[in-house]
């Protein structure tokens, strides 16, 4: 049962999410696992995909694939699925991947299940697990017909370096006329102060309970001391206190760090779905009834304006003393 994994890359690097999906696909031992890398610099990334489990890597560097826009990618993947006879196509969740996967599902009249937190093989058939209805239930989902298309929630699977050299194949590029009508005028190149939140082992996040944008400095100080990244809730991003790229939640990023420190965050569903996969959650909130305490490992009811500077000092002292 050959599987194709869409390997998204940004600024010359394969993203961690799709490499994790690649590792999972390989571990299912269903047959050939291939990767598809589309866009400028694709060929140079093929080796890395191979060492992370892809036996074959389809590459295409057509100029129409340079900007991270979904529709030309649908055209190429549809042809690759046909050429390679893939019966499973997997994506790691991202803004781009969601649009590509859904376009591909329509093009091939194929089933798409998304927000998957696990993928298993049961009695020979592929089964996905997906939290639903505000994460109150986990649903086992299946596919009818072929190919089965899935989008995996970000941070679900860890990449694994297995070694190996891939067979590199040119992907057929035959573009539909409507696919190239959208044009990138200006592509995002955001300066990031710290590590990207999706790759961070430690995240310190701030919410409305901080009281104002100036208090994000307290969050940034703690994140720096812990060697982590800063995240924010939708409420504070909408209010303009912090950039969208740091937003965790339903309409932002899904993260699963080793440690998540939630500061002044109530824990609404919108936020919860983006961070509940974290290994250890520490919450600081002045409201003892905040929902965040229901799913945190350690909850501290208190004033974060007092607590955060103290904690930052203690972390610095401990790290300095080691």
């Amino acid at each position: 049962m050959p599987t194709l994994v869409f390997l998204e890359h940004h600024e010359g690097e394969l993203q961690k999410g799709p490499l994790g999906v690649l590792a999972r696909a390989t571990s299912l031992e269903d047959g050939e696992v291939a990767g598809a890398i589309l866009g400028a610099g694709a060929a140079a990334l093929a080796e890395q995909a191979g060492s992370h489990g892809a036996a074959k890597v389809w590459v295409a560097e057509d100029p129409a694939l340079e900007a991270p826009l979904p529709q030309p990618r649908v055209d190429v993947l549809a042809k690759v699925v046909e050429a390679g006879g893939y019966d499973t196509v997997l994506f790691a969740a991202s803004v781009l991947a969601a649009d590509v996967a859904a376009g591909l599902a329509a093009r091939l009249d194929a089933g798409l299940n998304w927000d998957l937190v696990d993928l298993v093989r049961e009695d020979g058939r592929l089964v996905g697990r997906r939290p639903a209805l505000g994460d109150t239930v986990v649903v086992d989902v299946g596919w009818k017909g072929s190919p089965a298309i899935g989008i995996v929630r970000s941070g679900t699977f860890e990449p694994a370096e297995t070694g190996g050299t891939p067979e590199v194949v040119e992907a057929p590029v035959e573009l539909e006329d409507f696919s190239t009508r959208a044009a990138m005028l200006e592509q995002a190149h955001e300066e990031q102060a710290g590590p990207s939140i999706e790759d961070a082992d430690v995240i310190v996040a701030g919410g409305r309970g901080l009281g104002g944008p100036e208090n994000f400095a307290l969050v940034e100080d703690l994140a720096k001391a812990l060697g982590g990244a800063v995240a924010a809730t939708r409420a504070v991003v909408d209010a303009g206190w912090y950039p969208y790229s740091a937003q965790v939640g339903q309409t932002g990023k899904n993260v699963a760090p080793k440690l998540y420190v939630a500061c002044g965050i109530s824990g609404a569903i919108q936020h919860k779905v983006g961070m509940q996969g974290s290994n250890v959650i520490v919450a600081i909130n002045k409201d003892a009834n905040a929902p965040i305490f229901e799913f945190s490992d350690l909850g501290v009811v208190g004033d974060l304006h007092q607590l955060l500077p103290k904690l930052t000092e203690l972390v610095r002292a401990r790290k300095g003393g080691q």
Binding site: H10, P68, S94, L96, A182, A183, L185, A188, S245
Partner: peptide, 8 residues
């Protein structure tokens, strides 16, 4: 997007 703002 995850990386900031594009203009399309």
């Amino acid at each position: 997007t995850e990386f900031g703002y594009d203009r399309i």
